[in-house]
Design a protein around this nucleic acid. Sequence first.
DNA 1: TGTACATCAGTGAACGCGCGTTCACTGATGTAC
DNA 2: TGTACATCAGTGAACGCGCGTTCACTGATGTAC
Lengths: 213, 213
Amino acid sequence: MARKKAYHHGDLKNALIEAGADILSRDGVSGLSLRKVAQKAGVSHTAPYAHFTDKQALIAAISTDGFRRLYEAIAAAAQQYAGDPARQLIEGAWAYVQFAVSDTDHFKITLSGAVEKEKDYPAFVAMSQRSFALVMQIVEACQQARVLKPGPSDLIAVGVWSLIHGFVSLIVEDQISHTLLDRYSLRDLLILTLNQIAQVDLTPEMFPAPDRA
Amino acid sequence: MARKKAYHHGDLKNALIEAGADILSRDGVSGLSLRKVAQKAGVSHTAPYAHFTDKQALIAAISTDGFRRLYEAIAAAAQQYAGDPARQLIEGAWAYVQFAVSDTDHFKITLSGAVEKEKDYPAFVAMSQRSFALVMQIVEACQQARVLKPGPSDLIAVGVWSLIHGFVSLIVEDQISHTLLDRYSLRDLLILTLNQIAQVDLTPEMFPAPDRA
DNA sequence: TGTACATCAGTGAACGCGCGTTCACTGATGTAC
DNA sequence: TGTACATCAGTGAACGCGCGTTCACTGATGTAC
């Protein structure tokens, strides 16, 4: 809406990135092709070359956009629960889960190495670092609140991110035992998993705080 | 060696699975094709159809083999350190890391959903469950030794596996900050990460116990 | 304001390629008598 | 032991397809005077 119409199409570059996300949700990672993305955006299949040097560059842009969405979802959760580090941890992780579950193939292309030479795509690397910095920020708040162990916050952040990323990946790959998924809701299972790395009991957070009369 | 030569080729089915692993290590997941696998095994590109109904079935077999290798590496570690649950945890996790780092694309195809309809490949599902059962076994031993928190062992196992799987995935995708990788060896970083979920200090394990004089 | 020109986003034909899959076949092995 | 037949693993030509990329082009927009 806010974007000014440019030459012919308007902002084709971003339209292609959005079309890429659409294709991913419809046809998956293996169904993502330059030609389909162009068609989805309503241009000829060679038009993307005016904005991306090759397919890899388009994939890198789509992946960077995936990281941006993930970052923004976590940041929104962190902002909403500012001052409550335990809740920031839970809701940030929950945002991660939701992104992966609802945009599975966008999540996969972003975090499963479709970008082959990361170094060539500084915007992608920047988004990745920005996300890790956000995780570290939440982790530091949790450490101060004694929700997480003391220690170098980047090290603790690697543990926290590994736990969440592993959980989400296993969910997405359908590797979590169904007897567990029958027993717990996905959200409760996430909280019970986070609880294993926490220094305090997080399980009360499984239930929304009741209104005080 | 032990396998009896069959009709023409001999055990082509397994030869194709091994050839698949070779192709993965050379050309990666995106470079894996039926035709290359057949060529690598020294047969015409239609020969695989005598053993696999289609490409998906071959990929499922290669993935199942990947799970088998992973299982066996962890099982070997568990057996070597029988009676020392903390060490079983560390060395089992280390075996996981080593498999992923040395056979990256075999690891990826196995655990990053190349098998689209798992249900259609019961051998794959069986290997997956067998691996999870092994993790649970180690987790239970750790719980009895108070190395891990008490609680339902399948739930704790999900946490442990998530932590390890996430760590390994992030390493493989080059998402772990290089300042951390400069500070610690991969093995020490793994142990420091496991340490966050453990109820005892695992860090002494980072250094081989010195001989007592 | 009007004309001439430069820019450059987007077009469409064409390319060569590797792919998965089919099909009629070949030829080595195993089995029946 | 020898012949006739059945089995079936592996062959090779052929198919149609979607792909990434190139290239000469068109035509709308922006700029100079």
